[in-house]
Design a protein around this nucleic acid. Structure first.
Lengths: 241, 241, 241, 241
DNA sequence: CATGAATGAGAGTTCATTCAT
DNA sequence: AATGAATGAACTCTCATTCAT
């Protein structure tokens, strides 16, 4: 029994480790060469195993790709949730900023892979479950947003998917731009302001206090008027030269 | 000579026509099957010419793809500029809305092809000039934006590339979402509001009257209050007339 | 037109010639190594063409095999019919002998290929139309047999398929035996007697004149005995001289 | 020692049992998929053992196939001899009929496997000992035939191998035809008459009474002579005209 | 110039066999 | 002794590219 139980544990660990090794290798090669461009032989070589061995873990190249995608997006979702959990502040916008920062960084780092995901032909019936992965991932944002509305931190009439499109869309596009720019001139722009801008935009546009501009504009105007009146008074008190 | 010159014109026209036919065929096949999935034979058949003939116009599959991309993005840019030219209103936001509407529609219709563009591996040294095409295309937005700043319609301190990322990013992401959603439930959401929201957001956030208030709002109020206090103090110290 | 017609003729001839070359090469390799054992590469090499070229003539290995089978059995049938046509004698048994001799020789020469035909797995849904080929081929015998019955050369109550089984079965089995024996000791037996035996057997067993003897033998004897008895009786009735 | 001897017996029995299990599994898989189509893994799975274990009993797939063939043909031979032993009648033709019936049935039931035997390429030096198996098997017929000649039941001048070819050849061919026919139209023909026909043919053609024509010809001639003598006597008794 | 038959390198995948456990 | 994960050579088939016509 012991001679059976311990090895089985060891073996299972081994298999799982090897599975991870294969997935890592596959991901690297897929990212480097795309789905069609990737050669199973190279994946196997990178994983340090024989060609045939890959096929005892994954029935085909397409299925391997699927597993890689699964792992990637699941990992992303988990990490994003982890980020949310680790933010101490309960303030919605602070949490939003954390999510944006995490997402932007992720998208920059994994740009190739994300492109790869979307490149998988919808027509290519073999590999295309990506939509589900994506849905899971963006659900992190959705929950944050909806809770924000529940708590009255966000306008009740804000439309979830519009906000979501703006949030992820802007960040992804930025990531692409940043990547492109960095290659040419790394110093030209920083990524940080993008997130700040994003959060500011959300605060201004979707924040419950509403379009703060209008409200405070009045306040400022009032104060300025008051100040002007004071100065006017003051100036009248001064001795004329 | 004349017997040579006239035919040569005809021939040139012929060549150009055939070139267009090839490009159209190629684009259709590339969109349907992706770069690797497309077969030169099918492209040739669709263009109604022999396989070898394609190679007398384009040296390789990669170069053909490049030409297709070129044509596509150039066409897009031209169309976008045409849209701009046809908008009678000089109002920035009206023009922005027209551009957004055109872009969203374009992105939805050509989703496959746009994905294809980004899917072309940067590493795959063969095909990857897409960045330039993209730059050209977004320049339409850039010009609109800069002119808006010149005219004072937009905040002078607005950052071009941030606005651009938000503009195109949101729209592209929306397009993707819309496409996904439409497949499942076409009635759930409409695409039009997306553009409206986008323009509203721009007007509020980047409009000339708008923005500085938000960022410095608190600081300014504080400073103004402080200033008012100083003046108050000062006024009290002054001898009454 | 001429520039089109003549080349097309040449081309067609070329294609047909190449097709024959491929079939011949394929047959040789299939016979040598069996269906699974045959390598397309070797077939191509033997045909003196590139690997890919084979696939522009036959969609797959299975289809190539099918074509080889088709050609083989069709050729056999044609040859057998040719043999029948060339026999001047109208005598059934002379014709039968010619067919038997042709068949035996064919079966010996093509033993490998015939085995190959029957070896194609019925389960292997890909290649297995052999039954039809076979039916066509044995129809030559069937026609001969039926005409023999029509002409009264063969017993009217002889069963076609029994005769056919005996005819082809014996010859095939003999061929196999002969082949086996020849390898070990070529001189031990001759193939000629087999055919003679076969024909003798048919003449005796199925021949119209042959058979009644056996069947009516008893009847004749009975009648003769009866006749003898009658004469005996008669003789006793006669007055002695 | 005792503790060693008894288990060793058990172990030997175990080994032999496992060997049988492997052979049975192998035969089933070989019949179902052919030699090349059979996978060692499936054979092992069907035998309920590990893949590697098969190789501790048989060095290679080819050798396993050989063993299966051996077992099959030996079994066939044994069964055929059993059938011969169980026939109470000492009459040659009754025994022949039993053998024919057994053989026909066997050939029908094991058609796939018999085809498989002949399909093993002679060139494929690995597996091809089938000839010996066959020789052993047909020896049952040979013994029967020779004893028949010894006893005077068969013509002394009949040629063994000719008779053998006719016997087995016809039956095998019939089996194939029956199989083919049955698939299409089971009712069209019965298998039983084949054996009857076979035996009748042997009795007529090879039976010692012989070429009945000749023998009875004598009988008839004798009777006719006798009759002639009687008539002659009679005629002499008649009054001369 | 246009053609499309020919090419062959290279792809994914299989499976008999081995060997560490 | 038994296992089955690992191996990699070898298979069939594809398709971008060439070139004789």
């Amino acid at each position: 029994m012991a001679s059976n139980a311990i090895p089985s544990e060891t073996q299972r660990a081994k298999l799982e480790r090897k599975e991870r090794v294969i997935l890592d290798a596959a991901r690297a090669i897929f990212v480097d060469h795309g789905f069609d461009g990737a050669r199973m032989q190279e994946i196997a070589r990178r994983a340090g195993i024989g060609e045939g061995t890959v096929y005892s873990y994954y029935e085909s190249k397409a299925e391997l790709m699927l597993a890689v995608l699964q792992q990637f997006w699941d990992g992303l979702t988990l990490e994003a949730e982890g980020v949310m959990a680790s933010v101490e502040a309960t303030d919605l916008f602070a949490r939003l900023e954390a999510l944006a920062r995490y997402h932007l960084n992720t998208v920059i780092v994994n740009a190739d892979f994300i492109n790869l995901t979307f490149a998988l032909r919808r027509n290519n019936s073999e590999v295309s479950v990506s939509r589900d992965h994506l849905r899971h991932y963006v659900a992190v944002f959705d929950r944050l947003f909806l809770r924000g509305q529940d708590r009255g931190e966000l306008r009740a009439d804000a439309v979830l998917w519009q906000a979501r499109d703006i949030f992820y869309g802007s960040l992804e596009y930025s990531a692409r731009s940043i990547e492109t720019t960095m290659e040419a001139d790394r110093s030209t722009r920083e990524q940080l302001p993008v997130v700040d801008e994003m959060v500011a935009l959300f605060r201004a546009h979707y924040g419950a206090t509403g379009n703060p501009v209008i409200v405070d504009e009045v306040g400022l105007a009032t104060r300025l008027d008051k100040l002007a009146a004071q100065i006017d008074t003051l100036s009248r008190c001064l001795p004329r030269p």
